[in-house]
Write a protein that binds this DNA or RNA. Structure first.
Length: 210
DNA sequence: GAACCGATTGCCT
DNA sequence: GGCAATCGGTTCG
């Protein structure tokens, strides 16, 4: 049984690239009326501020990206291609934009529920990809802004669909970094991090070791 | 308001 | 390997 205690806000109030790397090996949890699910984070990507043309914060604060400028340790969820919900963790101090996209998990707990939501078998691809893990964990746009840290009174009053948090875990034996997936701008930046020994990656890594 | 685009996936050939 | 599905965000007129 992996640890369940949520990482503190201080973990997220750091350099986005460092948070992306350090999230590998941690455990992502979701709790909904349907049950609890958890998985080991094996792939992440860092998205920075206006200096990063691939980031949603590249053109400054907009209604969608505003949350990336806000306090760290909250969920940033957006809809991509009109059908997939992607989960990010907001990073950096309040006022500084940054987020880490969670791209793949090794399923640990709640496999039945994940399979049910994904309408597929319990194969390695169950949570291998941001859209796939979003579907498997039951994440949708209502989760946007939900704190990933210990629940506050405010969130308890405002939020009903479910709850999401990340617990610490041992770092992988190896970490590989490379270009982000599906990104054309700033393609040279090695802002993707993954555990090359995991069988649950969205795409195989073939870039530098860290 | 209209047009275009996208941090994806699954199904088709 | 190609491509459709599908819709909120962003930009432009």
């Amino acid at each position: 049984m992996p640890p369940r205690r949520p990482l503190a806000q201080g973990f997220y109030a750091r350099d986005t690239v460092a948070v992306a790397r350090d999230l590998l090996g941690c455990t992502l949890w979701t709790q909904t009326p349907g049950g609890v699910c958890a998985g080991r984070i094996v792939e992440t990507e860092a998205y920075l501020d206006h200096r990063d043309p691939a980031s949603h914060a590249a053109r400054g604060r907009t209604p969608r990206s505003a949350i990336m400028f806000g306090p760290p340790g909250v969920a940033y969820v957006y809809l991509i291609y009109g059908m997939h919900h992607c989960l990010n963790a907001v990073t950096e101090c309040d006022g500084q934009a940054g987020a880490v996209l969670i791209r793949a998990l090794e399923p640990l707990i709640g496999l039945d529920l994940m399979v049910q939501r994904r309408k597929t078998g319990p194969e390695r691809s169950l949570c291998a990809g941001p859209g796939r893990l979003g579907r498997a964990l039951g994440i949708d746009l209502d989760w946007n802004g939900q704190p990933l840290t210990a629940s506050s009174r405010k969130s308890a009053n405002n939020f009903t669909p479910g709850r999401v948090w990340i617990a610490a875990g041992p770092a992988p034996a190896r970490v590989v970094t490379g270009p982000r997936v599906g990104i054309r701008r700033a393609a040279s930046e090695p802002h993707r991090f993954c555990d090359p020994d995991s069988a649950c990656l969205s795409k195989p890594p073939h870039f530098g070791r860290l």
